[in-house]
Simulated assay, not measured.
Amino acid sequence: MKKLIYLCVLVFASCATSKFDKVNGVSFVASGEEVAQHHIDPVLKVGANYAAVMPFGFIRDLDSPELIFNTDRQWYGERREGAKQYIEKLHQNGVSVMVKPQIWIFDGQFTGNMKMPSEEDWEKLEASYEAFILLYAEMAEETQSDIFCIGTELKTFVNERPGFWNDLIKKVREVYTGKITYAANWDEYAKTPFWSDLDFIGVNAYFPLCERENPTIETLTEGWQPWKTKMRELAKQEDKPILFTEFGYRSMDFTGKKPWLVDRNQMNVNLKAQADATQVLFNEFWSEDWFAGGFVWKWFMQHDQVGGHADNRFTPQNKPAESIIRRQYTQVKKSSL
């Protein structure tokens, strides 16, 4: 009888692990200062076991091949020195890290539309981008970071230069021994050609779900079904788990219509819509065995100074959505009671 009870406990523990052992992550936004313990405490309080650390490179325009990175003109957290300090502090607190170098194009132009006018410019961009990625891949290995992301929302670059990306993945593997992914936008992941060479199918999950001003749990749930079916099929086809390299919603009306919007519109604040959309995403994905988890977009270091009930931006901080995230992310602790 004791053996039977013991076996039941083991089976239960195994099921609990498969259900709750997810990447419960936040996208930890770079700042101009070093990260201190009081910056990490809110990450721990929300129950996150992962953080994405995001050093940046900058490009002047969509057709410019010059990528500027790791310079003193950047914020501390956007360059190598700062990213390493962030990672070390997160690791000291038991938080795993995905290193996710990103590009910012002047005036917020969409990186997926970046396209060079000539072969010469493509080659210049490739040389610069490779140096950018390998710099941070080496840092990821040095800091023993758990996941490395080779790019974010670079649809045209990927489509136009597939050979470059195949070579880049091989070069990253030579210097970094952890898991590798790529953060494909919601409208490009299905045609990204190199998933078989990576460890996760990375998706920035800003899928349009419904056009209602005040979306309901029911309409949001219904809106997910076709997207969810396609991701499940791709995960099975590639035999790779889906990882939401970014997910989140604006706290505003129509939050499910175009979740990718980053403009500074004056849309009415709608805290309930953000909270409900976040809850539905958790309901739909976190119990799926083909789904690895994800990173909330976005989480600022200065927790007490951001978000709040008058803010219609992405951050869930100091809003009802933060409580939704905490409840989901801390389930692993509850399951062990």
Rank of each mutant, 00 (worst) to 15 (best):
112 G>T: 06
191 K>Y: 06
280 V>E: 04
103 I>M: 10
234 L>I: 01
260 W>E: 10
155 K>M: 08
4 L>D: 11
292 A>L: 07
107 D>K: 14
121 D>C: 02
166 N>W: 06
311 D>I: 02
89 K>F: 02
253 D>E: 12
88 E>I: 03
26 V>D: 02
63 D>V: 04
256 G>T: 08
191 K>R: 12
331 Q>L: 14
101 P>R: 02
303 H>G: 04
197 D>I: 00
78 E>G: 03
222 E>V: 10
190 A>F: 00
71 T>N: 09
249 Y>M: 11
180 I>E: 03
177 T>N: 14
94 G>N: 10
116 M>N: 09
73 R>G: 10
281 L>D: 01
336 S>N: 05
149 C>N: 12
149 C>A: 05
301 M>K: 10
261 L>M: 14
223 G>T: 05
121 D>L: 08
93 N>C: 04
52 A>T: 08
179 K>R: 14
87 I>P: 01
206 Y>M: 08
170 K>V: 12
117 P>D: 07
12 F>N: 12
50 Y>T: 02
242 I>P: 00
37 Q>P: 00
41 D>P: 01
60 R>I: 04
65 P>D: 09
334 K>Q: 15
126 E>G: 09
120 E>D: 13
88 E>H: 03
28 F>L: 13
312 N>H: 09
332 V>Q: 15
142 E>A: 10
35 V>Q: 08
21 D>T: 04
39 H>Y: 10
295 F>E: 04
201 I>Q: 00
163 G>R: 14
324 I>P: 01
56 F>K: 07
193 P>Q: 05
233 E>D: 08
188 E>W: 13
258 K>C: 04
